[in-house]
Measured scan of single mutants.
Amino acid sequence: MALNTPQITPTKKITVRAIGEELPRGDYQRCPQCDMLFSLPEINSHQSAYCPRCQAKIRDGRDWSLTRLAAMAFTMLLLMPFAWGEPLLHIWLLGIRIDANVMQGIWQMTKQGDAITGSMVFFCVIGAPLILVTSIAYLWFGNRLGMNLRPVLLMLERLKEWVMLDIYLVGIGVASIKVQDYAHIQAGVGLFSFVALVILTTVTLSHLNVEELWERFYPQRPATRRDEKLRVCLGCHFTGYPDQRGRCPRCHIPLRLRRRHSLQKCWAALLASIVLLLPANLLPISIIYLNGGRQEDTILSGIMSLASSNIAVAGIVFIASILVPFTKVIVMFTLLLSIHFKCQQGLRTRILLLRMVTWIGRWSMLDLFVISLTMSLINRDQILAFTMGPAAFYFGAAVILTILAVEWLDSRLLWDAHESGNARFDD
């Protein structure tokens, strides 16, 4: 018995066209964080690309023209004298008006014999932002004059995390709450300039795509075929072959399989920071003279006294001054041990922890910024005066060393310790 099946006739004509040209192939790229070699397709503007294995951002879609970056830099340069030299806060102490600005706080630190601690604050609040705007201006002028731009481009990517104007702005709020127990506070004209400078700096850093600047100024022929001998440069993120001198053909720094002496430098910085954190938390970090009496505060006791007036601000200072430094030390110690013992479990967790400490590390400088600003506000000789204690130097040095330890660690070593050939990683 035959089955009668109805015929289905399409209502619209289906047209099949042959592909007349070869589909576009992607360029081969190595991930600078996990060293995976993959094919990167062509990316349009405002599109980002991520590593298929570790999800690290390979290409950032946010990109401004150099002219727009230069305009932002010149605007920031105009704001800087007002943000640093004009009063941020006014207080009335014992019937006398006192003005506080950024430069005055750094000068008070240096004047009291601790120039190293003052230079830490100076670099993060004044030096690094000033280098940022002058570097962008150098790129703008240098591109037109045919100057060598490689050193500036190499420095810009590392400079971003040292620009800490946003953290200093939080420190202004913390210092205001600490001082309000002794005097009446009012915002100064410099505060508005400083807030504007923070906003412009944040926007500029978020749109400063150094890798795209490398592509514009020093374009290189990408690798179009897969080759395990391809290496990625950690300076400019170019994937290719080393030249005859073993250097990256684009930025001219040595092109090595792994960062040289990464573990040794990381261990040295980490152990030194552990040693410095002990006096930083045991010795007094601030000293207040009130009517001839002397009151010393460690980091913890200062947080407890701050909690009596504002528990939320005390929580912020606790996280930045105690929780973050010790968390960074514990995480980095764990990561280094996992590399030495070739741990194969929990790779995803370790990668996330490394990215976390990379982002939060700079916030530990908050305590030094609060001390710097408070020193310029309260300084009335023996009637009422505020000065920093010996722990300030140890704390600042420990924070900087932990930042350097994270920067010096080559994250690809975590993958080397893991089993080879993993296309995915999980716990």
Score class of each variant (00 low, 15 high):
S193Q: 02
Q186C: 04
S286Q: 00
F217A: 13
A398T: 08
N209G: 10
G293N: 04
A56K: 13
L409Q: 06
D367F: 00
T298R: 07
I330N: 07
W408D: 02
I19E: 12
L139T: 04
F395A: 01
R216V: 08
M164Q: 10
Q345N: 05
Y241P: 15
V152Y: 00
E419N: 09
G173P: 02
W359Y: 11
Q345E: 13
Q180N: 14
L94Q: 01
G315E: 06
V324Y: 15
T334D: 06
H340K: 08
I303W: 09
A385P: 00
K111W: 01
M120R: 00
S286T: 06
P10S: 13
G421L: 14
M155I: 07
A187K: 15
R62T: 09
N4L: 08
A423H: 12
W267L: 14
M375K: 07
A423R: 08
W267D: 03
M388R: 04
M356R: 07
D416T: 13
N101Q: 02
I91R: 01
I400Y: 05
D99M: 09
G61C: 15
R150H: 04
W92R: 12
Q220E: 09
L409D: 01
D227I: 10
S206I: 09
L337C: 11
L69H: 13
I185R: 01
P10H: 08
M147C: 10
S301D: 02
G246Q: 06
S420Q: 11
D426Q: 11
R144P: 01
S309A: 04
W267N: 07
S206L: 15
P219D: 08
R256L: 06
M332A: 10
T358E: 12
F74Q: 07
I106T: 06
L276K: 04
L23E: 09
D297G: 05
Y394S: 01
L69I: 14
N4S: 08
C266N: 05
H46V: 13
S135F: 02
I91K: 01
A137P: 06
F74A: 13
A307V: 14
M103W: 07
P52C: 08
L255H: 05
Q55P: 14
V370M: 04
Y289S: 01
R350I: 07
L145E: 01
L347R: 06
G118R: 11
H90E: 06
P249H: 07
T75R: 00
I131T: 14
W359E: 11
V174D: 00
A2G: 06
P242N: 09
Q186L: 11
R412T: 01
G85Y: 06
M388N: 12
V324M: 15
L335W: 04
S321Y: 12
Y28Q: 12
S119Q: 02
M147G: 04
V102K: 01
L336R: 00
T15L: 14
V198F: 15
S321P: 00
C236N: 00
R53D: 07
L139Y: 01
R259S: 07
E42T: 08
Y138I: 07
V324R: 00
K57N: 09
V170I: 05
G95F: 10
D114C: 01
K342E: 12
G118H: 04
I383Q: 02
S308Q: 12
Y289L: 02
H261V: 03
I274R: 00
I383P: 01
F333K: 12
F318M: 05
I185S: 05
E407G: 11
C54T: 00
C343W: 15
A269K: 01
F369T: 03
A115M: 01
I322R: 02
I288H: 00
K13T: 09
T298A: 08
L271W: 05
K57T: 12
P222D: 09
T75Y: 02
E212T: 14
K328I: 00
V163A: 07
H184A: 12
G302V: 10
V16C: 12
I136G: 06
M120C: 03
G188F: 06
R30V: 11
